[in-house]
Design a protein around this nucleic acid. Sequence first.
DNA 1: ACCGTTATCATGCGATCGCATTACAAAAAC
DNA 2: GTTTTTGTAATGCGATCGCATGATAACGGT
Lengths: 201, 201
Amino acid sequence: MPKQVDHEQRRRLLTEAVFAVISTQGFEAVSLRDVAEQAGVSMGTVQHYFPTKQQMLSFALSHMRERVLARLQAALAALREPTRRDLIRAATAVMLPVDPAGREEACVNIAFFSAATVTPAYAEQLRDGYGRILTVSVANFREAARLGELRDGIDPDVEAPVLYFLTQGLVGPILVGLYSPDDALALIDAQLDRVFRPISP
Amino acid sequence: MPKQVDHEQRRRLLTEAVFAVISTQGFEAVSLRDVAEQAGVSMGTVQHYFPTKQQMLSFALSHMRERVLARLQAALAALREPTRRDLIRAATAVMLPVDPAGREEACVNIAFFSAATVTPAYAEQLRDGYGRILTVSVANFREAARLGELRDGIDPDVEAPVLYFLTQGLVGPILVGLYSPDDALALIDAQLDRVFRPISP
DNA sequence: ACCGTTATCATGCGATCGCATTACAAAAAC
DNA sequence: GTTTTTGTAATGCGATCGCATGATAACGGT
């Protein structure tokens, strides 16, 4: 084998350019030429790593999920002796567009969501991502319930999706400037207050 | 003045074609030619009522809000001697894509939401729409609180946005097929159960 | 050292886009 | 009845799109 470039790395690099274009110019403005220019390469190079535009976008969507998961794991790992509530709150905050990285991911995510309504392949990828995160969230809530951290009468199998979809519903208002990240987090905390027992171990 | 066509009606008719194209072909596929074909007119007619594509889409977004409000008012008017909870639940259900009309509106809405991240004019329109609905929702919850229908310790100014954004967060999963409308409504009811007092006047 | 493979780039092609222009039919104004 | 304004349609234009093709440089295998 000649040359020595890492194919996957190159594809991820180009994918980052795709994210930048989507979040700054919009999903419909994504063209092979724009992506190439954003990545600082020629159009031919983009074609070399992605035979078609569809494959490029599909790879970008899968890579997006990995990026979010990486940021999630980093956020959780940064906690020192966290309670279940701390873990759940941190995971929730990662989903909100509070920093530039989060905002970029949110823009890309909503763009693919819109596209998924007419592209079943995207819908399947998003369904899978939703399902995985929900599973983890439910597991976290169940563990919190097992440890007795939840209030009486609180069903973890209900609270997990409620909190998760509440978070998803807050992404839009933050993106369009109706809510500030702090407003959103205040709402999240209010919901957590009603689900978790007050302080005291 | 010659001729006798109703300009606004024509624009709304064309806008319906825009909705159909967005929800079946996707936002990026919207072209003047597609809209004209969907509406059964020529491209020149579309141009006659909308000088530019941007104006057409912007009008479509404003008309979308009117359509949702009309459906909302119809749903509320259909209730017989409703409690506050009935009103709030019905208004919530209207936001979910449970029937073809609701699904079309949800597809269009998410498409404009994605576009709004790079088009401030759309963002402003959506912000305004969000704000209005939230205001009404808060007023409903406050009235419910005044009537003593809420549980002790429940803040209507918190519950209104929580329920609304939870609903918004459920739209996506329904659209991509992760959740059924019934699953979503079950979650909504669970949230309402925790906010409203159990039966008995 | 030579060859083959690969990465990268530049260019061309057919299709489609938004928009401008033009032509024509119909109804109100006179 | 003529004129004028408006609704509708057809067509053309420059730009841009995704994709295919060919050229060039660089590195690995032998």
